[in-house]
Design a protein around this nucleic acid. Structure first.
Lengths: 107, 107
DNA sequence: TTTATATATTGCAATATTACGATATTAAAT
DNA sequence: ATTTAATATCGTAATATTGCAATATATAAA
């Protein structure tokens, strides 16, 4: 097997899990933190900063983009990646809804 | 490769990613939601409820236990799984800290 | 136009995850 | 003691993820 049976879950459950999954890699956590710490938007020295190959960083950025967490704008010959604040907040709210709704009724 | 380079990240980044990762599967989201909806603690009909094989459910429960999210108590011949509320809240707080700290400074 | 620089994509190897059948293990019931 | 029921573990197949070198693409600078 090896394949997740997404059909047996609700769309909400799959979406939620997808958000968690994308955030579930230390490189992607580090990338988001690094981008957020830059005052400017020139986010290209991620390769040096993080310490993974350029191809690998590019792949992680793609995954973060896939859930809409990052905006990328062409800035001359480099790319300006920045956090999509609206999406960021929306996802945070969804996760909190999950945490607040899912509460223990026992023990 | 296929192996995550945890050594190049901070412990906090790895921990955070680990929490996200464990929550990053729809079956585990569904398990947590189901347990939280039961008034009693007899959480053994997960297999019927979720629709995955017993071995698979057991594996997912193990992962949820691995980050301390579930408590398991022996209740006769079955197991009583319930959410560890203290841990649950602690993790929610850590995730929110990450979300609030990591804010956009650009665009 | 050529060169240099930044990023994306492709292809591939190594490892991880998901899922399940089969087989323990454990405790209650007979 | 044996049987039944619930859960855990083992072994294994299928698929996914991680990471990188090589290559493609695109823009600025020369």
């Amino acid at each position: 097997m090896g394949i997740t049976k997404t059909q047996i879950f609700t769309e909400k459950q799959n979406d939620l899990a997808q958000f968690f999954k994308v955030l579930g890699h230390p490189a992607r956590v580090a990338i988001l933190q690094y981008i957020s710490n830059q005052n400017a938007c020139i986010c290209n020295d991620l390769v040096e900063e993080i310490g993974l190959a350029q191809a690998t960083i590019s792949q992680h950025l793609k995954e973060l983009k896939s859930i809409g967490l990052l905006n990328g704008e062409i800035e001359g010959k480099s790319m300006c990646y920045c956090i999509n604040v609206e999406r960021w907040t929306a996802i945070q709210n969804q996760l909190n809804l999950f945490f607040n709704t899912t509460k223990s009724n026992c023990c």
